[in-house]
Amino acid sequence: MRNSSPYDDPTLGLDLPEPERSPQAEPWPRTAGLNGTGGSAGDGYGEMIARLRGFLDHVAAARLDPATMAALSDDLGAWTERLADAAVPEREQVFGHRDDMPGRGQTMAPALRVHEADRFSVRGTVRFGRYFLGGNGAVHGGAVPLLFDEVLGRLSGSGGRSRARTAYLHTDYRSITPIGPQLDVHGWFVSEEGRKRVLRAEIRHDGVLCAEAEGLFIVLKPGQP
């Protein structure tokens, strides 16, 4: 019989996050949202996104019976129809545009909680829930660069800088990035020359380097999407 591992716990990564009712501590410079549509931190949007994150974690962990799956499918279908009536153009959407909230109010990547930030670096913490499980307690390999792109892309455009897009993102996996525990994230500028911005980032668990990345971001020319 093999030794048990903390990653064998079937409830791994399933503790529900606290509703995000207020802005994170010392956030990056923020706006009201794209075109002023972001709303206020107390409008309930953060709590909704936190619950959605928890829902996705539980869906990933669940093995449902046919009746439960059918009922859940019906519920999701009804909500899809209800949300369809509230659809707006991209520049008016709220999802991913809430700079006053951890993760900008989206569920594509785990929510980074910023503790220290300026124009050239950012430090914070992140927790990957069960939704991002790749296998055997480890974060899916594709989710790690997704977080790096979110962190470095946002840092690249912080401090009033012009918008830039990712030209490349190189990720090195140094050890297992675990599901569940709080991880430390650090991102920083390496160089900036003309339209080119080079940045690096790392993820650590209890001081152990899990993964690191380097990204090149190119400042957009006028009129570029």
Rank of each mutant, 00 (worst) to 15 (best):
A60Q: 15
M48G: 08
P181C: 09
A211V: 13
D43K: 07
P6R: 07
L56E: 13
G223A: 07
W28A: 10
R195W: 04
E26W: 09
D172E: 13
R197T: 14
S156T: 11
A78V: 12
G194C: 10
F132T: 01
L216G: 13
P89V: 15
R204H: 10
Y7D: 14
G38K: 00
G160M: 05
G129V: 02
P6E: 09
P89I: 15
E150I: 02
V208I: 15
R163Y: 13
A167M: 06
N136W: 11
V122C: 13
H205F: 04
P181S: 12
R21A: 07
S191V: 06
H58M: 09
A25V: 04
F120Q: 07
L199T: 04
D75E: 14
T125H: 12
Q224G: 04
D206Q: 05
K196Y: 12
P10F: 08
D118L: 09
D172G: 09
E193P: 04
L152K: 01
D57F: 10
P102D: 00
E150W: 03
G13D: 06
A167P: 01
A117S: 14
T107P: 05
H140W: 06
G180P: 05
H205Q: 05
N136G: 13
D184S: 15
A32Q: 04
G207S: 02
M108Y: 01
P6I: 12
P178Q: 07
A213F: 01
R113T: 15
G157V: 02
R113D: 06
F120S: 09
L72P: 03
P17S: 03
A138K: 02
D65Y: 01
G54D: 08
L216Y: 08
L112A: 02
L152R: 00
D74M: 10
T177A: 01
P10A: 02
R30W: 11
G96M: 11
R165D: 04
E202C: 04
E192H: 06
R2I: 10
K221C: 08
M48C: 06
S175T: 07
L112P: 05
V94Y: 07
G137A: 00
R200C: 10
G157A: 09
R91N: 14
G215S: 11
E193T: 15
L16M: 00
E214R: 09
R123W: 15
V219S: 14
A71E: 15
N35K: 08
E214M: 13
